[in-house]
């Protein structure tokens, strides 16, 4: 089966006064119908630029290169601006982090919901309205038809995010990209929105790319996970595999520095990742994590390879096998020694 989206060797660079910033450095992934891929990583690692590159909505200075970007088997790299605009409104859609920046304060919810589908699918005003009401109800907004006349500022944050979801679904996209869809919301509303996204994904059989830095969301929502660091995917695989055997030293670092209810004891110190992300200006050789990695050796600065440890679990680290073996050893050591005092 062809994946809904297939990306090969995507690169995004931005010329700056200090040199060229290589913000996304050769990443590849694919997502099938009904599947959710979570892109996770810390601020500035290139998550948003990756999604903007797929949508062809990068800032004007930024340059996009790729060996392949295919949506439903069609080559997006060949499309001109007008055709791309059509794809954007209909086959792929995006939900942005801050709903207020993508909702126009001067237009009613109804206007904004109906505009895209009328433009791209040429449906009549009444059909568009019907679909808008249907989707608003789907996303759990009560009294949907009366909401159509309201303006964005009249809605709470949780409701606005629901409207954004309804808007993204108006044309029935095959691919939905969600960039930090719940970061601004509190936990109960976050759970509601994620629940809703899952339901809708099932109903419309969409491929979903969800971007977040919250490992809790990743664990609960993803089928597959891609961990990004300094513009690269440094580890990827099935969600169970990544959470039960995180192998790249950076992924391990991330998992150790969050407090986990039931695991982290009250008042316990958390793990940290010493050092900072290297500048991504100019060319880089070897492993971008080397300056912070406890396992780093000379070879890490010279070559870099992606290794598939088991099918569907790839780690971009020349020492992946050794690191994995060391960790397995540690696990058995602690298990046989009993719980540490």
């Amino acid at each position: 089966m062809t994946p809904t989206i297939k990306v090969e060797n995507l690169r995004v660079s931005i010329p700056l006064a200090a040199g060229v910033l290589h913000a996304v450095r050769g990443i590849s992934f694919e997502v099938a119908k009904g599947e959710t891929l979570c892109l996770v990583g810390e601020s500035g690692c290139g998550k948003s630029l990756t999604s903007l590159a797929l949508m062809d909505l990068l800032p004007s200075r930024a340059k996009r290169e790729a060996d392949r970007i295919e949506l439903d088997g069609a080559d997006l790299l060949k499309l001109g601006e007008r055709d791309m605009a059509k794809v954007r409104g209909s086959t792929m859609a995006m939900i942005f982090q801050e709903p207020m920046t993508s909702l126009n304060p001067a237009y009613t919810i109804g206007n904004q919901l109906e505009e895209g589908i009328r433009l791209h699918k040429g449906v009549s005003a009444s059909e568009a309205r019907e679909r808008a009401v249907y989707l608003l109800e789907k996303v759990g907004i009560t009294g949907a038809s009366s909401r159509l006349g309201q303006y964005p500022h009249q809605l709470s944050g949780g409701l606005r995010q629901r409207v954004m979801i309804a808007m993204a679904l108006m044309c029935g996209p095959d691919l939905l990209i969600c960039d930090e869809p719940t970061t601004a919301l509190d936990v109960t509303i976050q759970a509601q929105i994620l629940h809703l996204l899952k339901d809708l994904q099932r109903e419309f059989d969409m491929a979903v790319i969800l971007i977040t830095h919250d490992l809790g969301i990743v664990a609960r929502v993803a089928d597959r996970v891609a961990v990004m660091y300094a513009g690269e995917i440094i580890e990827s695989g099935d969600v169970d595999e990544i959470f039960s055997r995180p192998t790249h030293p950076y992924t391990q670092g991330l998992m150790n520095c969050i407090p986990v209810p039931g695991k982290t004891a009250y008042g316990e110190r958390l793990g940290t990742i010493p050092g900072i992300v290297p500048s991504m200006i100019g060319e880089m050789t070897g492993c971008a994590f080397a300056n912070r990695c406890a396992y780093a050796e000379d070879i890490c600065l010279k070559t870099l390879t992606t290794r598939e440890l088991v099918p569907n679990h790839a780690v971009r680290c020349v020492r992946a096998e050794e690191v994995a073996a060391l960790n397995a050893g540690l696990d058995t050591a602690t298990a046989s020694a009993g719980s540490p005092a």
Partner: peptide
């Protein structure tokens, strides 16, 4: 109940709070 702990496979809880 709405806290998402980093445990794979548990899915997203529904706290039944309504909207």
């Amino acid at each position: 109940a709405s806290v998402l702990t980093p445990e794979a496979g548990l899915g997203v809880p529904d706290a039944q709070l309504g909207s």
